[in-house]
Simulated assay, not measured.
Amino acid sequence: MDTNQPLTLPPLYVFEGHRPVIHPGAFVAPTAAVIGQVTVGEGSNIWYHCVLRGDTNTITIGARTNIQDGTIIHVNAGRQCTTIGDDVTVGHAAIIHACTLKDRAFVGMGATVLDDAIIEEGGVLAAGSVLPPGKVIGAMELWMGNPAKLVRVLTAEQRAGFDRTAPHYVELAGRHRRSLGGG
């Protein structure tokens, strides 16, 4: 196996004159598709087989955020963009649609966040849950179910476990970049 294969550039697609803006310190896996009005901040990482489609509105992702494998992020045409803050974790195969995930929000694997929903700073949506349109997960709250409902407010100690994910993925993205030949 060739350990010095060249870095495959991620598929970044211009849509109607809008080119994705990816910080040079971000990692976008070569099988992800980033389309149109998408901005990805420093240290953030977009993993394999993700689709970020900013065709009819904007998607903005802050710093050190991880969007894990198979996640779909989209917008609502002309009405609602998608805004994702710093140090956010979005688990594998999630659907993030026309919503706001504030700093340190955590969305579990296979979860769905729908139009106009908000996850406040440090809020957590459990794996497999569906956050209905317009619902708000408060700071440090854990919600789960379909439709998602408040389960409890997390202690600082409980929330600290979730906070280890973002730095782990920043480090892991660097290893993937080096392994793929991108320095």
Rank of each mutant, 00 (worst) to 15 (best):
T3N: 13
N4H: 14
N4P: 00
P11G: 03
F15L: 11
F15W: 14
P20M: 10
G25M: 08
T31D: 15
V34G: 03
I35D: 09
Q37P: 00
Q37Y: 00
T39G: 04
V40F: 10
S44Q: 02
S44Y: 03
G54A: 03
T56D: 13
T58L: 02
A63I: 02
T65A: 00
T65P: 01
Q68L: 06
D69A: 01
G70Y: 05
T71C: 10
H74G: 01
H74E: 06
T82D: 00
T83Y: 04
T83N: 04
T89P: 08
A93P: 02
L101Q: 08
D103T: 06
A105L: 10
F106G: 07
V107I: 14
V107P: 07
G110H: 12
V113Q: 09
L114C: 07
D115R: 01
I119W: 05
E121R: 11
G123D: 09
A126L: 01
L131E: 13
M140Q: 13
E141N: 10
E141L: 06
L142G: 04
M144L: 13
N146T: 14
L150A: 02
L150Q: 04
L154V: 14
A156H: 09
A156M: 06
A160Q: 15
F162R: 06
T165Y: 12
P167W: 07
Y169P: 10
H176C: 09
R177M: 07
R178H: 08
G181F: 12
